[in-house]
Structures are given as C-alpha cells and as structure tokens.
Design a protein around this nucleic acid. Structure first.
Lengths: 241, 241
DNA sequence: TGGCTGCCTTGATGTGGATCAAGGCTTGAC
DNA sequence: GTCAAGCCTTGATCCACATCAAGGCAGCCA
C-alpha cells in the first residue's frame, strides 16, 4: 500500500458511503474540497473502544464498516446504552460541548472509521455552506432521534419497545442495501435491554412471544421478520390497553 | 417605544443574559457583529405555543423570560415531555434536520423570546468563529443532556428520578441567580411525570415521601429543599438494593 | 357568595416486568 | 473428542409503579 493509494482511498469523493455519510448533499464541485476532511482511517477490533468517557475530544468519526454501541454510566456503576451506530453514521458529537467525551463508543464487530479532526470540519464548514448545513443537520438528527428514544423509554411497554427497535434497525439496514426482513443482531440481549430500559430476560421473553405469534423467526442473533405490519401495529396501538 | 429604543433593546451586546445565552464566550470585539442575529422579539402567553410539531422551521429562539416545555407525541396520541427550558436556553434545534419542527414548545408562564433566523445564524457563524463553535456546543450540550435523560428513564427508580430532576432544576435556577434551595415549579405533576416516565400519582407520592423524610418541604408548587445531600445520595446509591 | 374547574393527594388494588434460579445451546480452546 | 465460558431461554415468585377511586384545596367567574 503506497501513499498514493491511501490518499485516493481516504477521499470522501470516491467513497461509496458518501450518500449516507458526512458529505451527503454536497455538490460534485464542492466534494473535492472536502477531501482533506478525513485525516486518516482507524481500525477498531470487536470489543475495543473508539473512545472512552472522559477522553479528550479532537475528532468526529464516520463509520466505514462495522457496528458500534455508545454507552454512558453513572458514578455508581450503572450504565445505559444510548445508541447503536452503523456504516455512514457519525460518532463523537457528545464530545464537542466540553472538549472531552461523555460516553464510550465500543465496536460490536471489527470496524473501520474515518477520523475527521473537528478543527478541520469547522474550518471547512466556514467555506463550504453545504457542509456547514450538513453538520447542523447531523446534530439536529441526533437530537430528534433521542427525543424518540425518550418517548419509547417514557411511555412504551416492553413489546412496543422491542417492535420499535426492530423496525428502526431493519429500516436503517435497508437504507444500506440489506434485506427489509432479515437481520443479524450484533449486540447481546443485555445490550438491547439496556438500550430499551428492559432486563435481558424480558427482551428474551418478548422475542419468544413475537416468535409464538408468528411475527418473527428468531435463531440466536438471526432474526427474520415475517410480519412487518404486525410490528407496526404493536408500536402504534398498544397503549390504550 | 420608538424604533431606536427597540433596536437597542434587542441587541445581544446589551442583554443581561448574554453570559448564559447565544453569545456566550464571544469576545467584546465580536459581540457587536452579532447584533443583527436577533431579528425580533416575540411574546408568548402562558399556555400558548412558540411553535408546533410539523410547523416549518425558520428560526432558533433564545428565551429571555419565562419557562417552556417541549413535547413530542406519537401517532396514537401519547405524548412525552422532552424537556423544560428557562431563560438563556435555546429552543428549536429539533427543526434543523428536516426543515420543520418535530415537537411543540409551550410556554408554562408568560414568556418572551428572541427570534434568530437560522439563515442569519449560519451566515454569521461563518464569519465569527466563536459563534460557530458556540452553536456546535449548544447542540452537543443538548445531545449530552438527552443521554442523561435516557439514563434516568432507562435505569432509575421513581425516587431517584425525582431527586435528579429537582437537583437539575435548582442548579439551573441557581446559575440564573435564584436560590439554591427554594423553587417554584412552573409545571404540573402530570408534566413532571411525563418527563420522568412516571404517572402523576407517583410523582405526588414521591414528593410526599420526600416531605415525610424531611428532605423537602412542598406546598403546592412551592418547593423548599431542606437536605440537598440527601437528594444527591438518593440519586447515587439507590440502585443496588 | 357559591360553585365550578383544574390540580393535587391519598388509599386500595392490580399487573408488567424485575428478580431469582436452573438449565440449554454455541463457540472456541486444547 | 472434552471442557469451559458466554449467551440465551424459561419458569416461579416478587415488587414498584400503574390504575382505579374518592375527596380536598385554591383560584376564578358569575
């Protein structure tokens, strides 16, 4: 691998994720101005962390391959998975406010990320309006996503939570060219539970219930959705008892 | 009120909230460049909305006086309070991603906000680096705050939630020059419950429990905190049981 | 003044999901 | 092949909070 090859490979302009990732919505003319945004790539082994709570913040990370979870924890040791991220999504936004990260980002499978020094992003986004706008949108999207999670945690019951989770996951995978009905969970039942505010036993039981009802087929971490509409109905109606 | 008076009044540079609000951290030299950021002021009566879910997004709003809640809702009518906002805080960030708002912002008491057209913010933040950085920090802060709420909703019990809520509220009020121990709740028990993922009866009972334990004094919406450390201990230890 | 209306408190009872416990399956090391 | 470590499933029991229900209190209007 010579320097030239690396240079070409790292360019956003030739990245097949560009329609999902940082340069989304940026015109062809502007695209080459972005090619200095990614300083380098970094590989993260399964189980390893991209960054830790408390670590100094320098960069945002765009996921090229692999799957991450982010989690915060309290002083007294509890922790909470705050999200699962996949290719094209951005990690590290939590670090901007205090110049250090406030959560851990852990790879759930071997992964590779593009390292984008935040200074450089700010510099470029002063020049490229579309990038500025996009950075704002990415952060706003995260805020809106979290509103959705708050709604889920604050007012849904176990079945609704899991149904919403599965629908969200396949929808995002589908946007990346995967099946609308089959997925492989990269996380444990316990991690799903943490994200959804449930215990792992409840997650497991709810999967079994869905399977009994013919809504999904579950074999370990392989899930096949048999009845997407049933999941949608569960999310939308369950409340009223 | 003549035009000149209005102009002066609207300037960030002469606003007594500037150390808490949008121009925070901006140097005196840059401050006057910001004075075009606020297009106008807007009054919102108690019970009225500043913006609604679905409404077109044009501006961010800085709260000058008053108190707001923001809430999202599902198709099937449930809703969830996603936050309470007070003077110096920014409303409307949720609207950036899709050019329309995804929640309602409702005044819980008569309020006044500074209307900052987002185009103008973007324009100015290309020129004033400190503003650019500050906008990023505000959004990042909101993301981190929501992580905290997810932790609360996902893993705390009723007493911990209410204790954390009260501590957060007085801390923010204190930063605005109010007492560290006395506060007036601007929201109903039901709104607190929605925010904390509890029913209003549980909120009420938990207040009564704290009062019985001598931790707070509650008379309607007037709350006096008698033992801040006890509240802190409740937040930090309750889990393990 | 009287009587709404909205909000809050408190008690009795019910229940969804947590907790405790036991065992099964899968994977990987040796 | 055997064994151990993780992870998952399922059953029995428990409990925190929801739900249902009945007043109480303060503020407002007629």
């Amino acid at each position: 691998m010579n320097i030239n090859a690396t240079t070409i490979k790292v360019a956003c302009s030739s990245c097949n994720l560009r329609e999902l990732c940082m340069p989304m919505g940026i015109s062809v003319e502007d695209l080459d101005r972005l090619d200095g945004m990614v300083a380098t790539r970094r590989k993260v082994k399964r189980g390893a962390s991209l960054f830790h709570n408390g670590e100094a913040f320098t960069s945002l990370y765009a996921i090229r391959t692999g799957f991450f979870k982010t989690c915060t924890s309290t002083d007294d040791g509890r922790d909470q998975v705050t999200g699962f991220q996949m290719a094209g999504e951005i990690l590290g936004l939590d670090g901007i406010v205090n110049d250090h990260h406030t959560c851990d980002a852990v790879a759930l499978e071997d992964a590779e990320v593009c390292v984008m020094p935040f200074d450089r992003i700010e510099e470029l986004s002063r020049e490229v309006n579309a990038l500025q706008r996009h950075v704002h949108k990415i952060m706003s999207r995260e805020i809106v996503r979290e509103h959705g999670v708050m709604l889920l945690l604050g007012s849904m019951r176990a079945e609704e939570r899991l149904a919403a989770f599965l629908l969200n996951l396949v929808q995002r995978l589908h946007a990346r060219g995967f099946s609308q009905s089959e997925l492989v969970l990269r996380m444990t039942r316990e991690e799903i539970g943490s994200y959804l505010g449930l215990k792992l036993e409840t997650v497991s039981r709810t999967f079994s219930k869905f399977a009994d009802d013919g809504i999904v087929e579950v074999r370990q971490r392989n899930v096949r959705i048999l009845d997407t509409d049933a999941l949608r109905r569960i999310v939308n109606t369950q409340t009223c008892v």
